[in-house]
Design a protein around this nucleic acid. Structure first.
Lengths: 245, 245
DNA sequence: CATGGATAGTTGTATGATAACTCACATGTT
DNA sequence: AACATGTGAGTTATCATACAACTATCCATG
């Protein structure tokens, strides 16, 4: 048939943008364009809903997405604030890439083997009293939870994350946070396979080196620690530990 | 006063985790552990609310956050699905809109200072012929684009990413990919500030070390390279480099 | 067989109410 | 005056319910 209407692609699909999405975009604009610099307290949800002429549900929806992306921070009973725009924000994109792909445990440990010794060196220079106190708290929790593999594994990951935090470098912190989240699933199996002796030993020594502000010793210990973990896991046959999928 | 209660920090703050956060964590676990592989259709919001014994609002809150992070995709009137991992980053909507501050750039470079020497060591062991060929291609492009700062900066970042690729470790690759995107905006300014001599010099030497399969030399050169970049940038006063937004 | 429409299931939005939390101010006690 | 305590307003978090908007499927009708 000639002149069929399907020939010409004239009609475009109508614009049907969700309300929450529109709110999201508007708020994002304000932040990114710098109208609302870091630290700004946003109008209350009720206020925003009134100004935008939408329900509070839609406002909350947009706010929560922005908070998930790291642009906003909501404080219960206090308000919603604009966060500092920094490089670690983009690292959020790393999370799904690692979470959704079947990441090999040895790949993660190999990465740790490079990053954690470097991190601990920076930590010996920059750790504040509260960082060291936190590390001690975590270490003691590991001693207490000797029998509870799940709790022990969790504390182990927290220990490494805490060292990253002590570097005061948001990139170290963010990446380590993501790695902790990913590893959380398999860490219990690793602890169960390797036992707790090595972990306790090295963590205590590393903590000591941090307290003594001895970077080279801390670095050496951390490298040994990760190396030994990798080596022993290889011997055990690491196929079993990761596999709950 | 003796026996003051404030002496002993015995009482710990009670656990007060938000409902939506708990839902978020549970759903995240399912995805990360692989219980719900990509493409899986989640139970309906009502169903989840009933199973978890929370309101639909809390479920939606968690789902929307996961969707914002890119782990889920909600289709109006159809359902919610675990997202297929599609290489490219969806967070890119925000990328061009942010100019990094001076501190951010140094944070990134500090991270590089640890990561890249470690990566290049692995690369000397694992780089295949095509990796080395690619590196040579990139290096030659740098020589050609001596005058074009933008192209030169781009090639510089590609060089580092290519080394990461040669490690065959997906974590190195993905982190380096994101860092490349972060630096892309500011890199031209950096090159303009520091010139191209150092870059060409070190990249050529590192390439040579890789071809010779000399890990310790490659590591030393890479560390020197990043160190020198940081140092010279400090001297220049890096305030200027970030600004295009 | 093709068309169109009814239908059930799902996500999106609206409304109103209540709980939980934070801060600042007022109040009372020493 | 100094400190502890209570009280209230403002804000976010959660709940329950209803309805709107959208999608896929099935089915009757021509």
């Amino acid at each position: 048939m000639r002149g069929n209407v399907t020939d010409g692609p004239v009609l475009k699909p109508v614009r049907k943008e969700r309300v929450s999405r529109q709110v999201f975009d508007q708020l994002k604009e304000q932040i990114v364009k710098g109208q609302w610099p870091a630290g700004t307290k946003l109008p209350s949800e009720n206020e925003l809903a009134k100004q935008l002429n939408v329900s509070r549900v839609s406002v909350r929806s947009a706010l929560q997405m922005l908070a998930a992306l790291g642009l906003l921070e909501t404080r219960h009973g206090e308000g919603t604030y604009v966060r500092e725009l920094s490089g670690d924000l983009y690292l959020n994109a790393l999370f799904p890439l690692l979470a959704l792909s079947k990441t090999n445990i040895f790949d993660v440990l190999e990465y740790r083997r490079v990053m954690d010794p470097g991190a601990v060196v920076l930590a010996t220079e920059r750790a504040e009293a509260e960082d060291l106190a936190e590390l001690e708290r975590i270490y003691h929790r590991m001693e207490v939870d000797k029998e509870n593999y799940k709790a022990f594994a969790h504390a182990d990951l927290e220990f490494h994350l805490c060292i990253a935090k002590a570097t005061k470098n948001p990139i170290f912190i963010k990446v380590n946070t993501i790695i902790r989240d990913i590893l959380n699933a398999s860490m219990e199996g690793i602890v169960r396979a390797l036992g707790i002796r090595d972990g306790l030993h090295y963590h205590r020594q590393i903590l000591q080196a941090l307290q003594d502000r001895d970077p080279s010793r801390a670095e050496r210990l951390m490298r040994e620690h990760v190396d030994r973990t990798i080596q022993r896991l290889r011997e055990e046959g690491g196929e079993k530990v990761g596999g709950e999928a």
